[in-house]
Design a protein around this nucleic acid. Sequence first.
DNA 1: TCATAAACAGTCAGCTCTGATTGTTTATGA
DNA 2: TCATAAACAATCAGAGCTGACTGTTTATGA
Lengths: 206, 206
Amino acid sequence: MKKAGTDAAPKRERVPQAERRRVTRGKLLDATIESLIDVGYPRTTTVEVGERAGLSRGAQLHHFPSRADLLVAAIEHLADERSKEFEAELRARLEKGDEPIDAMVDMLWTMFSGPLYWAVVELMVAARTDPELLGRFETFERSLGGRIYGAFKQLTGRGDRQAKIAVEMTLYFMRGLAMERIFRENDAHYANLIERWKKSLRTMLS
Amino acid sequence: MKKAGTDAAPKRERVPQAERRRVTRGKLLDATIESLIDVGYPRTTTVEVGERAGLSRGAQLHHFPSRADLLVAAIEHLADERSKEFEAELRARLEKGDEPIDAMVDMLWTMFSGPLYWAVVELMVAARTDPELLGRFETFERSLGGRIYGAFKQLTGRGDRQAKIAVEMTLYFMRGLAMERIFRENDAHYANLIERWKKSLRTMLS
DNA sequence: TCATAAACAGTCAGCTCTGATTGTTTATGA
DNA sequence: TCATAAACAATCAGAGCTGACTGTTTATGA
């Protein structure tokens, strides 16, 4: 009764190793991001992540031998997720055909006010005092920054220095505004400030 | 030889209990802030702080029975320190007699780019997932925010709604810009953006 | 000057987290 | 079909952290 029927019978799914590997790692990395969002960096322990992923310790350590390995991989995974989020948002705005500045700012705020951004904040702050994380984080942050600037060019047709700086300042403003959400949940307040930012941005670009 | 000469002899300093208490607690709280800046929130353990303060475990636990007590007190202490920093900066700008907007923005950037702000960031992010810290943090953050707005009124003579929002947006921008310092140290870059912000601010207020 | 309380020191048990080890199951390709 | 390697499971020792406990020193005010 140990071996499953080898011929006709239940027809077990045959999943290639590479695919199984990908799925299990994905579960662990998703669980890591989720834990960062829910309980923060210090309490994102390997046990916490293993439980969230529903995997045994052995399975976990097979893929990520140490907590550091897990977190470093989580940075890359988070970058992927944000990238997907970004592309989806960009497509949505393009379809809606909003005015470019509005589209850009709204799109960015959607990302900065979404749950994934808490994971970014946790990792960013942890990276400040952890050289290994810092190196990784920087790489992906720059890459996404470049992609955002590219989208701005695509939307507005402007690629000059002034535009670049305006995008940069927008990102900083969003970052600071997003942090405020630690204390306040008042969506109307943020909506108001976002509208005001659009005005400032237009002035900067004119 | 145990008891010191009671009459003439070496004249031991007599320090009142309240003062000794104040000093020892100050050492512990300073050490906590220093540790937050140097190694971050997760590694700011009670042992780490005790060693930095040069105090025994007993002394430490006498004043702060738990890690949580220490961190909560550190928030208040940090608020005091920032407050002092603020008042000092404000006086300096008033003496220099700079143009009000310049003075305000420069003063704020001095604070946001100073070492104390890293401690603020560490505690703020930790507070996100820790209700006890959150309550405390919010209180002092609001209080300092009010004081900053007050100074703005004092400097510019403007206390209208538009001014209030402009100050608020300035604080958000600074917060986001300060975080960038995790990755980049290029002072000239920040100086440039600060100058641009002054322009935006003037436009907002005009 | 002396009783009392606060300040301070040192040690340690208990807990949690990490990562190593060993054993079992499942998939793949020969 | 079977040997091999990857994937997964379970347990555990070691290290670090917290907070409790006990004992000593120092200051205060009666």
